[in-house]
């Protein structure tokens, strides 16, 4: 079951079938979520209209952690089973996750200025998410630091697994430390502490961000596969020319 999807050709067929659905779902969910969140949902009795930043901030923060978990999972699969597509998925996930983390940091900062009176506080949640951002950057830098792409993929996979220690720290930072950031109010014992009129757009936005991730991920993996093919063709062409040059006569096709 697992290795059935290791075949790039089969994956490309599957991706081509899934991609329009992911794109359509993203557009529909994002539109409904934004309308419900920005227009239809009530303003908070304490926070006023700024509460609407939450509909972007919370899903981005969810996705930041989700993408890192997906990245670490894909890296583990790539290292253990040498699954070629898992390596491509990990490499394709990293920039998306970094973008979500950046979005979460920026929107949180924009919300913090009117609410907390400051753009940034050095508390456990904010700091650990900033560390997550740097882990993404480190992963991408290490991935691209080698002349041999295979080496970079392996080295960065180990780094991604090491950096996974940060994920539980982010999750529980609001419970372990006494911080300014509020604790989780959606996933908690005794049900969510948010009124349905706000919870519905929030969950819709979360779903929209997830389908957006799937959409962009498929585009990026297809791009990686095509780039690998192009590289292989160029190498073959270069090898063909190199072999053909010293010899006097052979036709390009027979060079090897």
């Amino acid at each position: 079951m697992f290795h059935r999807f290791a075949n790039p050709a089969r994956f490309l067929r599957l991706a081509a079938a899934v991609q329009p659905w992911a794109a359509g779902a993203t557009v529909v969910l994002l539109a409904t979520g934004l309308v419900l969140g920005l227009v239809a949902s009530p303003a908070d009795y304490q926070q006023g209209e700024t509460v609407r930043i939450m509909y972007v901030h919370v899903p981005s923060a969810w996705m930041a952690i989700f993408c890192y978990s997906a990245l670490a999972g894909a890296c583990a699969v790539a290292l253990i089973w040498k699954h070629p597509l898992a390596g491509l998925a990990a490499r394709a996930t990293a920039p998306i996750g970094a973008a979500f983390t950046f979005l979460a940091l920026v929107t949180g900062s924009l919300w913090g200025k009117p609410m907390w009176g400051t753009w940034w506080v050095w508390d456990a949640r904010l700091t650990s998410v900033l560390v997550l951002f740097f882990l993404y950057l480190g992963y991408m830098a290490l991935d691209n630091a080698f002349d041999d792409p295979g080496r970079g993929a392996k080295a960065s996979s180990i780094l991604a697994l090491v950096g996974f220690v940060n994920v539980p720290i982010i999750k529980f930072s609001v419970d372990w430390w006494n911080t300014l950031h509020q604790p989780s109010s959606v996933v908690k014992m005794g049900g969510p502490a948010i009124h349905p009129s706000m919870l519905t757009p929030l969950l819709l936005m979360g779903l929209a961000f997830t389908t957006y991730y799937v959409w962009v991920l498929l585009i990026r993996i297809r791009r990686e596969i095509i780039a690998t093919k192009i590289r292989a063709l160029q190498m073959r062409q270069a090898a063909g020319q190199g072999a053909a040059a010293p010899a006097a006569a052979p036709a390009p096709g027979e060079a090897r």
Partner: peptide
């Protein structure tokens, strides 16, 4: 991790 990479030192600090 940085063995054999380009620009090892500055990369090491990021990691």
């Amino acid at each position: 991790l940085i063995l054999g990479s380009r620009r090892g030192g500055i990369l090491l600090s990021l990691l």
